[in-house]
Design a binder for these strands. Structure first.
Lengths: 194, 194, 194, 194
DNA sequence: CATGAATGAGTATTCATTCAT
DNA sequence: GATGAATGAATACTCATTCAT
């Protein structure tokens, strides 16, 4: 992915806020230009289309996840600690920028366009493959119980993270996501350890 | 909720299909009228607004869930069997009509309008309260482990169901949801039983 | 004009109310049918078109005015008393059914369709010719001053009546139209008598 | 009121013509855009809504009247001359732009929307208060007869002006409004002077 | 007589995008 | 780079009218 210019970065960031505030229907060029303080035409100097903005958003998320999850599985930490890293990476990120949660969990929104839904799938895959690596290692070295299929453990872990974040969003970010996330993490640890 | 006329039922059902096919953006009165083979104006003889159609869809889902989950917790079955009922209710339903899954998991889509998002929340609540009843009973009578908070077990169960269905959708319904669901169910049972 | 059936009369009367309440834009077949408690289609049993309803309204007004003003000028009363008759005819009528005022003074509304504006003009003409007859007689027999053209006196009389009624409507019928009308009448009398 | 851009002025002026030609029902965005030679959407670059266009029209009329009638009563002219100013202001204006008459006398058209009818009432009030000032001065200094209430004189003056203009419109501007207006003015002068 | 469903044209408004300046 | 004007297609919804039942 090409480097983004400062203006492009600004557009992308405000687009994310806009989606968070008013859902994807609120992301119009008009709204965006108002938020940025540029004319509508000006936006097209920086992106060829609205689609490109969306693609850039998703790509940047993917890139970020790639970078952050890349070495988790290769580290020397225990499997359970590695899972903790995945948990905390997500909960910290969403707490810092709740708008990201709104965008990431809006797959259905992007299913319109295949080129966008592919990016969403890549993001899920990144998490799945990281967890797969962690869990398989953990099962091999006796840290994690083996009487349950690895992919089912993954579904449970990702599913419970996603559901917790979804409820956090639907309740307007009322509860402390990191706190709840930590309790959830401990529960998961208890459940899956050998 | 009032009885729906046959035409209303037809509109509602085709609207659900439309959302499933093209996401909420695809649910336009024009698309809908084309699908039904009526003029656009004709739809307004049966519903006052597009909003009403959406509300009817969500209400019918809620009503259905109410009816189906109502007595689960009161039955004489074991807690684990009751959980199985919740699982199979959902997986059977989605397998029969995949479009429903697309609509139900589109909360972000409805967050635009409070009156709609309230309905979505009610649906989640129905599932949560059913599971809460089941699990608390199970913990009390020694069927379910007590070292993990009830609400975290709920997050894991609902989360993993939702995530499994989401992946099923994103992979264009390629795998057998009921099969996978059954394996997931067994995994969950193993994890939470005492 | 043909006799109106009871149903036609009902439709015409409720149409007048509707125009009074919501101006001509509020007169839709849907609104009308709701007010009558009939279906929309049913209205077309009684009138061929919305236009016909409007025409019937205006014609009935004209007919009524014809009947009531017909003999005023031929009576043995003095000119000033005859003018009083014209005044009181109008103010009594509007007080009894304010809706009529709303419709009658909405010429601009009917100017769309020539066939309708012709009816409105006939109504004005009826008043003008009645007053012309009265005033010319009055000027001839020395009751009314002759230093002012007859048609200018007419403009002043009709104009002041219309303006008083217009203000009455615009202030939501707050003041007593008959009272104010009587004072206006006395003023006019003073001004025009020899 | 903000300065209008040339395009806005063009839109407002053509909207006035449109109302004059086809009454308020003829003022649709489609008609307007056709008349201007722009697309419908383009109009929304210049006004936020049709309502705004209407409001701008009425406000400009009010502003114009405010400016023109402001100093009439404060001048050193005799009361009768001041009344002549009010007369000629109106008749000149309507002769120059007959469309204005069509809009101004369409109160019933704007009664739908309170924010619009308020503007129309302000316009009437401006005329009333100007005349009230003139007549009261005239009655005080012996120019105008005192045996008739001031507000009744006002009703007669405004009423006869309005009615004359209304007939002018309904007869498709056939007669010379300024001529007729002048005769009416002389008649009024004779009637009200002491 | 009356209903309810249906139509087709029309209504204000929004949107992504283009382009001359 | 940026603006402001413009476009054309789309959006939800309304309306007078028709017609089978």
């Amino acid at each position: 992915m090409k480097e983004l210019s400062p203006r492009q970065l600004e557009i992308v960031n405000l687009a994310i806020e806009l989606i968070a505030e008013k859902s994807i229907q609120g992301l119009t060029i008009k709204n965006l230009s108002k938020k940025i303080g540029l004319s509508e035409g000006a936006i097209y100097r920086h992106f060829n289309s609205k689609f490109d903005i969306l693609l850039t958003i998703l790509s940047s998320f993917l890139q970020e996840a790639d970078k952050s999850l890349q070495n988790v599985c290769e580290s020397d930490n225990s499997a359970l600690d590695q899972i903790e890293s995945v948990f905390m990476y997500n909960f910290n990120r969403f707490t810092e920028r709740p708008a990201i949660a709104s965008v990431i969990f809006s797959e259905s929104i992007f299913q319109n366009d295949n080129r966008l839904s592919v990016e969403v799938l890549k993001l899920l895959d990144k998490h799945e493959s990281t967890l797969k690596c962690i869990i398989e290692n953990g099962q091999r070295n006796g840290e994690i119980r083996v009487d349950i299929q690895c992919d089912k453990l993954i579904s449970m872990i990702i599913g419970s993270i996603r559901y917790t974040v979804t409820k956090w969003r639907l309740t307007n970010f009322e509860f402390d996501l990191i706190n709840e996330g930590r309790i959830l993490l401990e529960s998961i640890k208890k459940l899956i350890k050998k």
